[in-house]
Design a protein around this nucleic acid. Sequence first.
RNA 1: AGGGCGUUAGCUCAGUUUGGUAGAGCAGCGGACUCCAAAUCCGCAGGCCGCAGGUUCGAGUCCUGCACGCCCUGCCA
Length: 336
Amino acid sequence: MSRPTARVLSGIQPSGQLHLGNYFGAIAQHIALQERYPGECFYFIADYHALTTVRDADALRANVHDVAVTYLALGLDPEKALLFRQSDVPEVTELAWMLSCVTGMGLLERAHSYKDKVAKGIRPSVGLFTYPVLMAADILIYDATVVPVGKDQVQHVEMTQDMATHFNEAFGAPKDAPYLHRPEVLLSPTPYVPGIDGNKMSKSYGNTIPIFASGKSLKKIVGRIVTDSTPLGEPLPADRCNVFALLSLFLEPSEREEVRTWYRTGRRNGEPFGYGHAKKLLVEKIEEHFAAARARRAELEADPDRVEAVLRRSAERARQVASSTLDRCRRACGIR
RNA sequence: AGGGCGUUAGCUCAGUUUGGUAGAGCAGCGGACUCCAAAUCCGCAGGCCGCAGGUUCGAGUCCUGCACGCCCUGCCA
């Protein structure tokens, strides 16, 4: 069996309200890729993975639904990309077990994200420790060739490559017909998205700007973005400004240079230009950028069955691919 | 597996000796100030006191069981 067709695979954690960091770091990429690999983008909502942290059944269900709504509102086209619940393809857990049996403890003990969490004082469950195995199963079960990830996830994809090879070698796959195919990393061009406190925007820092924040609540959040204490009318350091960094994400290069000029001179059209004005502009840009998506989101919220139907239809196709891979692996190791 | 210690607000902990209206700091939220923030000031909110029984007029506090965590010892290899 030759290398399968190009196929993109990525997962999204349903661990809370999606924010601008998620959008620019992953979601926008995912949606763009559906044009480059139409029909071959597999995106799953990682509810099994979420169990490593979430302890609230209703919240998990709500978050999964919210991720689906958000993706569809932002332009995910179910004709070009699959969007399904990880747990709707339970075959993946069986493959994860098989992989765990060909994976050394040392490989997992070396995982950065695991070590970081333990160092931060998180008490690890077995599930947290074996997280990369489930992730490998997620990728390998769909014969994915392209895995778009940020820098922090590269190691996990490399571990996936290792596990694929270990499995193939352990069960004597012919060189030209591996049971599992080594995926490639597609390093996403992740721009730096600062949170309102200046650290990287992340749910765990509590410094996020939700994608669909708007009106008064958005003004409040943007208002709280940390700035330095440059007095009004004096030059502002654009390159060290969180507001400018966020603003840049929404601006064309030419617009960005214009704003940079306002920062450099501390003036706009002869009037003093300060952080307050920059924040007002940011609010406008955010509202404008997501206006259409916000409207679609409202429609989808009113029609949960439609969202559910997309998830189910996607899962059906994903499951076909998954059972075929699983069947191959079962035979390979003697389970069938 | 046995023993010791621990479990109280989002976080760090006090309150257990002597049973009597659950507290502090930090974080959070609101307001003042500021072009906006920060800092500062004012204010607010925050809790099945791990779970389940028991004693008592009354249990965060005493007794029993259980769960989870850390440490020591043992067992297995």
